[in-house]
Design a protein around this nucleic acid. Structure first.
Lengths: 353, 353
DNA sequence: CGAGATCACTGAATCGATACAGTCGCCCGG
DNA sequence: CCGGGCGACTGTATCGATTCAGTGATCTCG
């Protein structure tokens, strides 16, 4: 079934049938109804997407690039909230959303990327040197970057002021009176290297978000006249509670004097609270824990997590909107979303002693 | 940049350039390398997907239909695990994955469905009478149904024996000695009607999975010579812990004598455990709770949830594989995945008294 | 040595739709 | 009554690739 066949059946031109679908104002309502009725009758479902794409050059789909292990992308609450925003905006603009997973180890050429029919890409927290990035950037379609990598030669950027957020978190603990802080971070490089991290390695960390947050923590600590070199920093094997628990347990074993824990994400912070419980510490009496992101579970966790809020769903909405606008020819934009400290019950003044 | 331009630059035919990409065996390795090198040089990224799609008719993408509120689809652990499996299989077959959200209230004609370029659809737990279903079924591409609706005129079905699973759950509580059971269910119809549910309404419930599980619970209870009409049944406003907590709280208030709670999903069960805590009951001493699905949190929840396990990630893998096979012309298949009772710490014998 | 097979590559037809530049009536103002 | 303008519809060119039948040249083998 093609436009032509409908046209022949009705004795009108193919163009008119096309117009019935795409430019209702170009023909009388009566003719349009006749065309649509005939289409319905013969089971024609509207213009073939391939033909339309070829002619118009529009693909009517947004690409979402995934480079993380798939288990993490779908299980991750930050990602989920972000995708919710993207999907919502895409849905309401009649646009499809194409997930393009590039699992580690799969050559980009064998992934779905080379044959993907999308109008542009949203790249969410991808390491700057990831091999999938170059091809999509050079493909010429607009690319919106979220969080990472921070480049401004692309069609748009959405992020937050990670430095300000991390500074807020550190100040919060410091102003409560904590003097012995520890830091638990997620992956710093393309692949995780779990265990203790030396302060000197931070500047070379590939993952910008982690690098910036860590640097801000340490700068705030230094500004409070404490010694940043004395702060134990542990890298977790992934960004999930289990990995966070393991890393936090290591930290608390190595540095039992710590009373305040700065966690690079809420997922890690949840693990840190579990680690505290396992080691017999109560939160916040023996150990204060600050997270980052304000995922939904931060509210319902026991104790509810003090954290840095960022508008995750909005981030998705804005990224999708930017991409939609960019495909319509709008100039690049750069949006930095607001953040704020949310004080809940996982932090408090250190116990005297 | 087109195939033709590359061909002209090199003085070969367009067909040969196409073969360089699609049929490497049709030309000498040396010529192929020259073509690929030239393509690289001029920034050609391989055959235009639209042109290819038009000619071959293959779209190289799988469609995933979503009709739930987006907030639930991305936040739902069952869905996440399922999508992980789908994405993994799609990724390794070089196929894109197109999400097609059809939010309630958005006419299907204005959604991305009519213009979606996909080779087939996976339909996950969609009510049989959902308006998005008819168009995609009649579009002629293969459709794989997961869980619901249960029809066998489509390209495939993946599901579990919900009746057997629910029976297992009920038997577990009964054999522990519980005599006073309660049931908390998620949505029974296209829209939720939170609150107490009369037994007679169950047979008319639109959501097959809930209907079947509920019926099996009650049948098992009747088979144990208890009165199913005495079993309080409450419907939650959604399939998340908060909704489950509210419904379970109502149930425990209305029927405080209940010692065992059958929950249609783990999400609901988590809420039920919270409700128990709020009402001062300890789990499992005062109240036993059984879930269904075995989501990741069932293991880490406190107490770890007794539940019915189904292989969620595999479900996604199998659905995607079926769809890929169906697009390759394979005949329909119907797969029922294994389930089993997982005994953890949320159930125990009722306290004497 | 010559017939047939094989290899490497080419040319024309085709996929289904949209853009654009018309064409054809018809109405209206002068 | 005539010319201009407008609304409704048409015809042709074109988007970029793949398919398939075919063409020479080279190889194989009795």
């Amino acid at each position: 079934m093609t436009l032509q066949r409908i046209a022949d059946h009705l004795g009108v031109s193919r163009t008119t049938v096309s117009n019935a679908y795409n430019r209702p104002d170009q023909l009388t309502a009566e003719l349009r109804d006749r065309i649509l009725a005939e289409a319905e009758r013969v089971g024609y479902l509207g213009p073939n997407p391939a033909g339309r794409m070829l002619r118009t050059g529009r693909r009517n789909a947004l690409g979402l690039l995934f480079t993380e292990d798939l288990h993490f992308v779908f299980g991750d609450p930050v990602m989920s909230a972000f995708m919710e925003g993207v999907a919502e905006t895409a849905a309401h603009s009649g646009t499809g959303l194409t997930l393009l997973p590039v699992p580690a180890g799969l050559p980009v050429a064998e992934s779905a990327i080379p044959t993907a029919a999308v109008d542009g890409y949203i790249v969410f927290s991808v390491a700057a040197e990831h091999p999938a990035l170059a091809p999509i950037v050079s493909s010429g379609v607009p690319v919106i970057v979220v969080d990472e990598p921070s480049r401004d030669d692309l069609a748009g950027f959405v992020g937050i002021d990670d430095r300000a957020g991390a500074t807020l978190a550190a100040h919060h603990l410091l102003s409560l009176g904590h003097q012995r802080l520890g830091i638990v971070t997620s992956r710093l490089g393309l692949r995780a290297r779990p265990g203790r991290v030396d302060r000197s390695e931070i500047a070379r960390a590939d993952v910008r978000v982690a690098r910036v947050r860590l640097t801000a923590y340490l700068d705030a600590i230094a500004a409070a006249d404490l010694d940043p070199d004395a702060v134990p920093i542990f890298e977790a094997s992934g960004n999930d509670p289990d990995a966070g628990r393991v890393a936090a347990t290591d930290l608390l074993t190595t540095a039992p004097e710590v009373t305040g824990l700065l966690c690079v994400t809420d997922q890690i912070a949840i693990g840190a609270v579990q680690a505290a419980a396992v080691s017999g510490r109560s939160v916040p009496d023996d150990l204060s824990v600050v997270g980052f992101d304000d995922i939904p579970r931060a509210t319902t966790w026991d104790p509810p997590l003090t954290t840095i809020r960022q508008p995750l769903v909005d981030k998705g909405r804005i990224a999708a909107r930017m991409l939609l606008d960019a495909t319509a020819g709008q100039p690049p934009r750069r949006t930095i979303l607001p953040i704020g400290l949310v004080e809940r019950a996982s932090t408090g003044p250190p116990r005297r002693g």
